[in-house]
Design a binder for these strands. Structure first.
Lengths: 212, 212, 212, 212
DNA sequence: CATGAATGAGGGTTCATTCAT
DNA sequence: AATGAATGAACCCTCATTCAT
């Protein structure tokens, strides 16, 4: 409004900022609706309503429903990756602390996005489907799996983990997180506390067996 | 009354046999299609085709799409329950063997119904949704959870399991099975081998920690 | 059973009697269901159930749904005609008595078949429709109209009725019966009493005007 | 704010006008199709065709088939009420003139909407049915009945009508109109002329009896 | 660009009719 | 001739997508 109110380089940023804000509002609304209804049952109209725009506007930002879905998933995956990308995570200290930090990070993310996380968990299995219209799904929990693998490799290198079943450990790391998440969500409607991280680590390292 | 024996108890059983066969064919086709497409995307027409009947026939056996879905789920739950109902499972021997038998039984079931099992796992999370039209879903994996709880309780009683995190153990038992299942299904398109049971048991009892 | 129990002229009547009984049962059931649901909403299966036969059997007696409907209507028309065919109706006595007997007869019929009568009344208007599949409907209330016309003609001949609006009188005779019927049915769920006949006759002869 | 006058209050009214026009087109088409086919046999597709819109559009304006039907009926009832709401109808002059005006008004309405009027008449009886899914129908001919009752009450007060059968008079007023209507429609495919009003009034006041 | 009404293919469901037993 | 399961055309309705304003 101050200067460059014409067509100069000052207007473009304004337009650009509005565009970004609209896009963000749509993505947020889409996440909310996908989370509440599930991917299959989420309707474009409800997303538009929630975002405060007209349905047509959705199509100005995303090619179609699939693209919107994909964008939501990618956005979430990107955010999880960011959270887990902290190099300090693996860097230092005894293995048990690395492990606890890993669990804590994922639990934090579950807290922040637990509804959508539920969908991600669910959708992981959707991979095996023959879709009516084939749809590319990103590997959503890939960052988590990748980090789990790095963690296990690191643990084995340090001699903190036995090597014999090492192929299963990443799977179990993720499975425990998912299992706890599902249990809490079904039982209390809320994701697990970050404070559960040490118990997860203890089980992962020593199992449930009695003789310690 | 006697002469009717070729007409009463002779003909009726035929009709009845055909009915049962048709019903079974529909359920099987429905399981296949629900598994391949997911619950939301399964179309009645495809189920009918797969079953080798007309669409209308589906409605002679099941009230509507929901009822068919429910019947498939109940059938599967019933079968899993049957499989896990074997009292020998918990009865005798050292705890590690009980544990291995439990894992083996569930892995067997996954082998038999792996496609549908994928859906069951997926649907467990569907519980938290706000459905458009509310739908009663049976607690499909309940039998598995229940048995896991019994197993843990038994292990704690025998001193084979530490009591401190016992509230988490059933969740982890199931989560490990689910995690392994998902990994195999995504990686190879096939469920895990029953032979994995001892490795599952080992991890559950001793964890991944290195000092044995 | 006594003689001719073979293939002779004694067996045919038995078969014939059974056929007639079945046919009658179907017609009765059809009347009931048509009356309860309306012609459009009456389903063949419900008719079969009510008649105590299988659906297929309906088609052994009637070509299709339309034919069954037609048969019900014709049956009812025949019965009304029979009731109104009594020659004593027009034969003797002062006109007002003829009139009262006419009203009483129709009211009787309404009592006996009031549900179906409601349909007949309703269907009279269906004539003007463009049917999806053209269907021949019999002139169901024709007997009633015909008798009304005879009655009016007789009244005019006797000098009991003014001639000037005589073309309208049969219409009004029937309309009054129908109006009373509809009113009672809607208000009380029951057809009018036969005892209303004199009031109908009085209105028809003298109108509602005050100066007598 | 001022410049928007081509965009705010200028564009909105356009959309609004189009909406109203579309809604009106749908209602008109629906009246035509309901009238031509009857309520049960009217198909949404035909209504859409007749209105020049797609099927989906019908559902942008009305919740479902029932709601559309209801809207048509209410619209018609509203219009009849408007037509009969003229206070001059009962206000002045000798009773016979009030009566003739009443008949004339209803005959006018029959002229304007004779097809739908046929349905209204028919549907009045539908009330007594056990519907598959219960459906609220508005009291469509209520305005006509109500006015008939007022007219009779007024006539009795003025001493123009005998009080003894006054409970039947409104029924007969309506019945005569309906009877005449049905007769003309069946016989000529057209509703009765407004010019019939005096004959209706004469019969209502004096009946058909000969001695004047 | 935003808007939101129009579109119409697609899916669930019903039910008159057929036909093998 | 009776049976009743199978059939599939026909209908209502949904909702992703388009496009004129």
């Amino acid at each position: 409004m101050n200067r460059d109110s014409g067509n100069g380089p000052g207007v473009q940023p304004l337009r650009e900022r509005v565009r970004r804000a609209t896009r963000a509002a749509i993505l947020e609304a889409a996440e909310a609706v996908f989370s509440a209804r599930g991917f299959g049952a989420a309707r474009m109209e409800e997303i538009a309503e929630q975002a405060g725009v007209a349905v047509g506007t959705l199509y100005n930002y995303f090619d179609d429903r699939s693209a919107l879905l994909l964008a939501v998933l990618e956005e979430s995956a990107r955010e999880l990756e960011e959270r887990l990308g902290d190099p300090a995570l693996l860097a230092e200290g005894p293995f048990v602390q690395q492990l606890e930090r890993f669990f804590a990070k994922v639990l934090e993310h579950q807290q922040a996005h637990f509804r959508l996380f539920a969908i991600l968990v669910q959708e992981e299995l959707e991979q095996g489907r023959l879709p009516a219209r084939p749809v590319r799904r990103p590997a959503l929990l890939k960052p988590m799996h990748r980090l789990a693998e790095q963690l296990v490799a690191s643990g084995v290198r340090q001699g903190a983990l036995r090597a014999e079943d090492a192929d299963l450990y990443p799977t179990f790391l993720v499975a425990m997180l998912r299992g706890l998440f599902t249990r809490q969500l079904c039982a209390r409607g809320a994701p697990p506390e970050v404070a559960e991280a040490p118990r997860l680590a203890r089980f992962f390292l020593h199992g449930a067996g009695g003789h310690r």
